[in-house]
Design a protein around this nucleic acid. Structure first.
Length: 749
DNA sequence: GTTCTAGAAC
DNA sequence: GTTCTAGAAC
């Protein structure tokens, strides 16, 4: 690592192609991203002209015998070409994630998926489109402006976590030229380094949406009187980072939106991604100055990464080295691919570990330092670079964290919170530095192991374990803080005024079931006047509209609805939710009259609740045995729409056309949804269930139930959850809140 | 609870 | 022009 500092600047730029592993030929699929007129066709043609590789350009505008074809045709042609060992350009706009997703699936250990983003000024694209006479897309004349503008509205810049191994941003024609050169120079056996190249902030466009949907929010008061403690807890919390974004955008909305990705000057903590994933960037330990064997070291890195990926929650690990020619980096990269390690959770990155955000567009809230045993800023390499970039604040925090000893043992690691005053924190968004000391194989340095690799490997393993343990602990803290109060980050919209409330009491209460409207005829003509007012357990009146009665009716007389119910016992009725909000969504309905909802439940109902839980769990297991990837949650709504206590047994994919709005999502994915295990525990302890404020919970922003990222609307959210591979957050993994397949694999999926 | 739809947002 | 939300009716 010591050589890292020398030629930093040129190394950050486009790197020359590097030879792939001997004899191993890798195809590349380049997904071009750009509006009409951005130059996608020209780009691919220029590369094809100069390249010694065999390329195929798949152009949707011409694929059907010279006419516009379909995405499916493009996919087919691309697949065939890749099978032939060719590399492929996908020449279509590919401006949103959805459009790209199918093509990303063509990636494999033998096929790298790259994106080249032709993000040229809209004006230029429009004028080219307008001027264009013989263009294949037949997009001419004045319409072009409207079309280009509309398409750019939908633009979602690609990100590595979609599955790309490399993304190149071109903001002007010079960038395009460079990219043509880079791609034109890749020979049949070459590969290009992974990571972001060119532009810096792939989240810019997404932010626009997020800012807009949050704009109701009042900017929090950012003038903290206690910069150390307050900033610290604020900025280590991924959710409250959003608050920073909100505050920032609320005050600078226009300016901020218009910078659209070019806001390199903005501080990382204030303007970067809103859905930051906890990320640890770490250098290879001991392989530079300490001269540890690279082959052995890369095996250990892979081994430890694999071991820890499950233990770091939704966090990511990134091995960083300064040069694209780094041997250790490439060894690890190849081995990671071989082992099929999830590339969204672990990848390699070429760049300066002290400038990953500002120069590489990669946001890492934690970085590791290949420290020396005294934890001093001296020496060269990563250690000096990090101390240098962080400023004196890191030295002070390090001293505090190290305590009296003031040094660390080989194989151990030490987490140091980085004060918000540090440049590295302000500029790069780094909140913690983890010092880690590896084994030394260099006779010139103290404590040399003299080639004793038995000992060396053991210590190196310990070093990575300690490092990843420290990171896991940071992720846990973040997750806990977030789970304690997810709404805190949200700039909660003020809860609704009284008039709205009363409206809901009367009318908004639901009845899910059209299907059950049939039987209603039997029940009587008095549909309209059927609404029931009852005193609930806590003495408040609850009016149940006529539409809210169907579960109650079924519970009272299940035989009548035989064809709709899955199971009837003395205590419960089990049925499929008529409007399932996920692939599988059952209801376990209590049959006891008078037990309308959770507020009515008391200690004497505990046996019934346990029965409901057990029967729900039994059905979940049955469904899992049919489809092991399903993961279930069992729970109650704080304030249900339907009369008669019912337990939801709902699979966590939320893949359903019936999930349509914010209320649907939030009623299953905020504290409005009370896990059955917790409800039982609470009643055992306190005699009744603790309910949560449903009104405000229904209006919190939409967050992924796995990685907790925020999304501006339901379609975006649904598109995200269909792809999100993050593990479930730790709070759900505890206490048996999730019902998963016996081997547990579902929860990871 | 869903459906319908106006109009806001993009 | 199309997408999306949210309020009203049921």
């Amino acid at each position: 690592m010591d050589s890292m500092i020398t030629s930093r600047d040129e190394e950050m730029e486009e790197a020359a192609p590097q030879k792939a592993e001997e004899g191993k030929k890798k195809s590349i699929i380049v997904i071009l991203v750009g509006a009409p007129g951005s130059g996608k066709s020209t780009f691919s043609e220029d590369v094809v002209k100069t390249s010694s590789r065999s390329w195929l350009r798949v152009c949707q505008d011409t694929i059907a015998n010279g006419k516009t074809g379909t995405k499916a045709q493009c996919l087919k042609k691309a697949t065939d070409a890749l099978n032939d060992g060719k590399s492929v350009f996908i020449d279509r706009c590919n401006l949103d994630r959805e459009q790209r997703s199918e093509f990303l699936k063509l990636g494999s250990p033998h096929v790298d998926v790259h994106a080249v983003v032709l993000d040229l000024p809209a004006r230029l694209c429009i004028s080219r489109s307008v001027k264009r006479t013989g263009h294949e897309g037949n997009l001419q004349g004045g319409k072009a402006a409207a079309v280009v503008n509309r398409m750019l509205q939908k633009k979602e810049l690609p990100k590595l976590n979609e599955g790309f191994s490399r993304i190149t941003f071109c903001l002007n024609e010079k960038d395009v030229e460079e990219a043509v050169k880079t791609y034109g120079a890749i020979g049949p056996l070459d590969t290009l380094p992974s990571g972001y190249f060119g532009q810096k902030n792939p989240d810019a466009k997404v932010q626009l949406g997020i800012m807009k949907f949050m704009k109701k929010v009042e900017p929090p008061n950012s003038s903290s009187k206690d910069p150390v403690s307050k900033q610290e807890s604020k900025e280590t919390n991924p959710s409250s980072k959003e608050q920073d974004v909100v505050a920032f955008s609320a005050q600078n909305t226009d300016k901020n939106i218009k910078t659209d990705g070019n806001s390199r000057e903005h501080s990382a903590a204030g303007s970067v991604t809103t859905n930051d994933i906890p990320t640890l960037a770490f250098p290879s330990i001991s392989t530079a100055d300490f001269q540890f064997n690279h082959e052995k070291a890369s095996d250990i890195i892979i081994e430890k990464v694999e071991e820890f990926l499950d233990k770091i929650g939704n966090g990511r690990l990134v091995l960083v080295d300064l040069t694209s020619g780094s041997r250790i980096l490439n060894l690890v990269k190849v081995k990671a691919e071989h082992r099929n390690i999830d590339s969204s959770k672990f990848f390699t990155f070429v760049g300066d570990i002290t400038q990953l955000y500002t120069k590489g567009g990669l946001h890492c809230n934690v970085i590791a330092n290949a420290a020396n045993w005294r934890l001093k800023p001296r020496g060269g390499g990563v250690n000096a670079a990090i101390f240098n970039a962080a400023g004196p604040a890191l030295e002070i925090s390090t001293k505090e964290a190290a305590g009296d000893a003031g040094c660390i043992e080989p194989g151990s690691a030490l987490t140091v919170p980085l004060p918000s005053t540090s440049q590295l924190h302000k500029r790069e968004g780094v909140t913690h530095v983890i010092h880690v000391l590896g084994p030394n194989m260099n006779p010139q340095r103290p404590d040399c192991l003299n080639s004793d690799y038995d000992k060396g490997c053991k210590i190196l393993r310990e070093a990575y374990s300690s490092l990843f343990d420290c990171f896991a602990s940071i992720v846990r803290t973040l997750t806990e803080e977030f789970n304690k109060d997810p709404s805190k980050s949200v700039s909660a919209v003020p809860s609704s005024p009284i008039d709205q409330r009363s409206k809901r009491e009367g009318v908004f209460e639901s009845d899910s079931n059209k299907k059950y409207k049939g039987p209603k005829v039997e029940v009587g003509v008095q549909q309209k006047s059927e609404s029931t007012q009852r005193l609930t357990g806590d003495g408040t009146a609850k009016v149940w509209g006529s539409w809210a009665q169907s579960l109650h009716r079924i519970a009272m007389d299940p035989e009548k609805y035989n064809k709709d119910v899955l199971e009837i016992s003395d205590d419960v009725v089990v049925l499929n939710d008529l409007y399932p909000k996920a692939q599988k969504h059952l209801l376990v309905v209590a049959r006891k009259d008078g037990l309308d909802r959770l507020t009515d439940v008391r200690v004497e109902h505990l046996p019934l609740l346990r029965t409901m839980h057990n029967i729900g769990g039994k059905w979940a297991m049955k469904l899992i045995s049919d489809e092991p990837s399903l993961v279930f949650r069992l729970g109650y709504h704080s304030d249900p729409s339907m009369r008669q206590l019912h337990l939801h047994v709902v699979s966590q994919d939320f893949n359903s056309k019936h999930l349509k709005n914010k209320k649907h999502w939030n009623s299953f994915n905020t504290a409005f949804f009370l896990d059955s295990v917790d409800v039982i525990e609470e009643i055992e302890k306190c005699g009744k269930a603790k309910l949560n404020d449903n009104e405000s919970l229904m209006s919190v922003e939409l967050r992924c139930n796995k990685c907790r990222s925020a999304h501006p609307n339901i379609p975006h959210l649904k598109s995200h959850i269909s792809r999100c591979r993050a593990p479930f957050p730790s709070n759900l993994l505890q206490n048996g809140r999730l019902v998963v397949a016996p081997n547990g694999s579902g929860a990871e999926a």
